[in-house]
Design a protein around this nucleic acid. Structure first.
Lengths: 131, 131
DNA sequence: GAGTAATAGTTATCCAAAGTAACTAATTAT
DNA sequence: ATAATTAGTTACTTTGGATAACTATTACTC
């Protein structure tokens, strides 16, 4: 909570240099690491309603960063990164990595790992209450 | 990032039971622990611009949770919790405490402390880049 | 002490990013 | 074959952020 706003602010300024918004970035991130997703999968992953995903996806598609993958089930819209999308992701990734290094400054490797473990434990607990 | 949304969603549902929004809660929280603040102080603490604070404060004042404290400097608007505001804070606090206990389930006291330390270290690093 | 700087807050306006409700089209289950 | 479910969209609302331009007050400077 107390951590959130300053983090968000910094992330936003990093992203805005590349003309990206946070919601867009989170989708590029997921797609880069997981190949392709349907909107419903994204909405679960992001913890956000479907119309929210529809809108962000549409914008990313317009920008030429995403393209649909044909599927059997004609209801679903499965999306993947275009070459441009992948390139943009990689560029932004560099900036984000630097930024993350900066905010972890002075925290030992061991503590970082512990921190990550705690976070993912919290995440698990949060997920339990959802389904 | 990945932690944020599910946390936010849970927090929002807890708060909405008490007809509060996140931005409002963060101000009640700060005021309960720090007595009284000016809008500028709040805007620094929250990492948010002044007009944003003006709006939220105005709403909380309307709701009868906040009241102005007279000051020498006639420019500033220093605010504190009303009795109602304090009562509401305490009620909501109980719900938030339970929620926090729940998401920390299975994480040892020692790890929790380590986690908090890491967070506050990150926060310090984030603050450095601001001023 | 007059005049300029800076500071605190407000108003107006914009926009991102979430939500809900109601819908269509496609698929599954009965 | 029909009903129920699922994926996604459309239309609309709201929160909560940002900027720009402003007023009122206080602090600084010569």
């Amino acid at each position: 909570m107390l951590l959130y706003r300053p983090f968000e602010n910094r992330l936003n300024t990093e992203l805005s240099k590349h003309h990206l918004y946070r919601a867009q970035w989170s989708i590029l991130y997921y797609l880069y690491n997981d190949g392709s997703v349907t909107l419903v999968e994204l909405s679960h992953y992001l913890g956000v309603e479907k119309p929210t995903v529809t809108r962000t996806i549409a914008k990313l598609e317009d920008m030429g960063y995403l393209e649909p993958v044909p599927t059997k089930d004609k209801r679903e819209k499965r999306m993947q990164l275009t070459d441009t999308g992948r390139k943009v992701y990689q560029e932004v990734r560099v900036a984000i990595d630097e930024f993350e290094q900066e905010i972890l400054n002075g925290i030992s490797e061991e503590e970082q790992l512990k921190g990550i473990r705690v976070m993912s434990e919290i995440r698990k607990n949060l997920m339990k209450g959802e389904l």
